[in-house]
Design a protein around this nucleic acid. Structure first.
Lengths: 200, 200, 200, 200
DNA sequence: AATGAATGAGCATTCATTCAT
DNA sequence: GATGAATGAATGCTCATTCAT
């Protein structure tokens, strides 16, 4: 029955949202299933009806989050504008999203730590990272006029994506807050300029 | 008595070592105090004689680790060689160290996640990050002939240090292992080349 | 649902009974939650489902015990017989109850000691003491033909209730056992006689 | 060596004082040996040099306290004044002492509860109670012109001593403080008056 | 599907006591 | 006699998971 499936999906989404909030706030290990139950407005039985365990819930959440993010990234990369603009747009979108809901960075850090211990989660992040590099490679290839699969381009793409992650990490932990968007923009601008410099 | 202090410090070091191993292996939350007790060869009472709680132990460990790391970095940055060489050397040392003992990256990720929840740990990382950027700024300033405090230099330094962190993160989580040292070297080389390019 | 409430109350009663037995036998501090769990036949989780902590369990137990005792006392005081008879009856009932289950005195002493440390328990005993004096005042007032609120009557009631408590205390600790009922009876008889003596 | 013995006794007294303070404040079970160490200004080793265990320390303390109290009582009872005055004086002294240092009542309640569990302490209190009744009997016998060993006199003495204990108990736990001295005085006065009444 | 009472293994921490110095 | 670091059994409480209803 589609009606049932719909309700099921709605429930799952509801639970993911609650779990995301609680994990971001308290961390995975300090989050009790009861906290998620309360946050979600459902009952404990319901929660266990949809997810067999806390770990499975976390795994599902990671799947969902990274899928969303990949899709968003792909949407940006596929736009018709010039590559440089798309790069800047991507970075800005990314930064704005996190600035508006900083708990996302927190949550991601938490789930990254969890990835060390839970192979399935690790797999998710690992392939997401690869996908991320692929997309950035496409952009950089256009920008530099190289093939996306060239070693140089992939190295640059890996560097850029690592840079973004590292910047977000520092931003999330910084005691003296700084503006993520401009920090990223300045860096990207410098790199894009290099890319256009003949001889590069 | 210095003898007592010495023994006390030896014990603390012994405990830090055990805690580092156990946290790296199992993560902070899955690590039981009994595991650390066993790993350290001491008794539970001794452990609690030196650290009031698991959290205080973790905090102490972070202090110690980051202090060591800062000192190591400073030693490298203060060498007499040309800035570019020091930069490469730093990156190589860093990469080799992690490649030889990959559990360090694991441990750091774990403790970074803990920083979100434990203010004192967060403070440690935050100031360590700043210190890191300071040192890189010194190197880049020499390299580019600018002042270490110039906005451009600091932005570049922030970017570079973020890049290193992000790269290590990806390396630690990658399902398909890659060579951290060469990945870092290639990136650094590219950047150093840029830096030497007139007009930069 | 009333069915659920009923079961809940039954559980609570079951736990109180077990806790009373264990506290009486071992004292509050030497009683382990596991002992109460075993005595109650429930599981540890169930116990903590109904009481958040050992202290809350003790507090609840005191509430229940003193409420019961107050009601019993009130029932006796409200009987239709002459005041002197009610006084004797009360004392005899009290003594017989304790003689039959001496652990009650033990338990009360234990909880009194706890009252020093736990404000809520102290409050319980304090107001129970006041209530006790009120009831005795009613009896003595009838007996002596004064108002229950007259200073003399209240002093006498306070004295009498203190006397009963003190006697029970000595009885509970005496190495050479004595008969609580007759000790109380003789004292009360002497006092009642005084009360009837003209000029009092 | 007497010098050593003296120091030993001084130490013991010092420890008793500290233990009394800590037990009164925190109760026997919540008092840690370390608390007593700190309060006494001695070291842990020293404390265990003089007392083999916490229980032995408590037992020794009870011995000391009750011995003091018995001696004080005996001193009062042996005075040359009329029996009624001595009775009043005893009660007043008793009340003033407690009012000035209310922690004594707390401490006694705590140790009474401990008596339930520790036979030696129980024995102490039990014989102290008997001694107390003996002394009161002497007073009442003089007052009433009976033999101290007559059943009536002993009953009255038991009642009076129970009354005092019970009153102190209530006073120690009362939420709404009352004046212990006058409460006792009024009661004693009433009883003394009775005692003088012919026919009693 | 949903509820929430019940389960019980797990764990951080405490603290009386010991003992090498 | 005195010190205080070290010991380790003991224990209150948590919380993921189950299951009768």
């Amino acid at each position: 029955m589609t009606a049932n499936e719909d309700r099921g999906n709605a429930r799952r989404t509801q639970i993911f949202k609650a779990a995301a909030a609680v994990f971001a706030r308290q961390g995975y290990h300090r989050a009790r299933m009861d906290d998620i139950v309360e946050e979600s407005g459902l009952s404990k039985g319901a929660l266990y009806w949809y997810f067999k365990s806390k770990e499975e819930l976390a795994t599902g959440l990671v799947h969902q989050m990274l899928t969303h993010e990949s899709e968003a990234l792909e949407a940006v990369v596929s736009r018709p504008e010039p590559a440089a603009d798309r790069l800047r747009f991507m970075s800005a979108t990314f930064a704005r999203d996190l600035t508006e809901s900083p708990e996302k960075a927190s949550l991601t850090l938490e789930l990254l730590a969890l990835a060390r211990t839970v192979p399935e989660i690790r797999e998710c992040f690992s392939s997401h990272h690869e996908h991320f590099v692929d997309q950035i490679s496409r952009l950089l290839a256009e920008l530099r006029g190289t093939r996306p699969s060239s070693a140089e381009t992939r190295t640059a793409a890996l560097a850029l994506s690592a840079l973004i992650d590292g910047m977000v990490l520092r931003w999330a932990l910084a005691t003296q807050p700084f503006d993520l968007e401009s920090a990223l923009r300045e860096t990207i601008d410098a790199l894009v300029q290099d890319a256009n410099t003949p001889g590069k």
